[in-house]
Design a protein around this nucleic acid. Structure first.
Length: 204
DNA sequence: CACACGATGCGCT
DNA sequence: GCGCATCGTGTGG
């Protein structure tokens, strides 16, 4: 047995969490959103740790469709203006939660909305991600860099796996902005853009 | 204080 | 494709 310290047996689940650091999140929202694809969202629920692979993300800054539109701070969106690497969870339509990760440097609003994950069943769409992962309002404001209960770990992007960039879902304002990213061919993608996929030659 | 509506998902037409 | 559940939030009076 050579000098290999990390085997697949010691590197995978069951070891100490290796949460993404704050420096990962303290970057432009589009960069972070794209970079989260393929990473693993982890949530401790009691003794259990739920893990899922992030496959669809949207970016929100101070654009017209954002809760932080016009860079206006309110009680609800305040966490979007705070330190990067924290959870922004909001309640909507009287029954759903949506989970975001705060981006940009402290004081600059930004968040990446997790819209789809693979690895848990029925997690295409932001509300279903929260339901499947057990994320609710209690997670709002949580620091994801400490790996206490909620965190993200670096993942592998499969060879040849394509990233599709297209418009965001379920908004009216600024719908032309191509601020949604997803991994082509993943089950957890809420809505495919066939036009974009064929334009970039995606096949499967 | 009143009210319109939403970064959704589900069931029915 | 359309209506609707269900309620916190933001905005305006």
């Amino acid at each position: 047995m050579g000098g290999r310290k990390h085997t697949s047996a010691t590197r995978g689940t069951g070891n100490r969490p290796r949460p993404l650091k704050r420096s990962f999140y303290a970057r432009p929202t589009l960069v972070v959103a794209r970079g989260l694809l393929g990473c693993h969202l982890c949530h401790r629920v009691g003794e259990e740790v739920r893990r899922a692979r992030i496959v669809e993300v949207e970016a929100y800054t101070d654009d017209a469709a954002s809760h932080a539109r016009r860079a206006r701070r309110t009680p609800r969106n305040a966490v979007m203006f705070g330190r990067p690497g924290h959870a922004y969870v909001y309640f909507t339509y009287g029954m759903h939660f949506c989970f975001n990760i705060v981006t940009e440097r402290d004081g600059v609003p930004g968040a990446a909305l997790i819209r789809g994950v693979d690895g848990v069943s029925g997690a295409n769409g932001p509300a279903r991600v929260c339901r499947a992962m057990g994320i609710d309002q209690r997670a709002n404001g949580a620091d994801l860099t400490t790996a206490e209960t909620l965190w993200v770990e670096r993942g592998r992007r499969r060879k040849g796996e394509r990233i599709v960039q297209t418009t965001r879902i379920g908004i009216r304002a600024a719908r032309e902005l191509p601020w949604r990213f997803y991994l082509a061919g993943s089950d957890g993608v809420s809505k495919r853009d066939r036009t974009a996929e064929s334009a970039m030659g995606v096949e499967y």
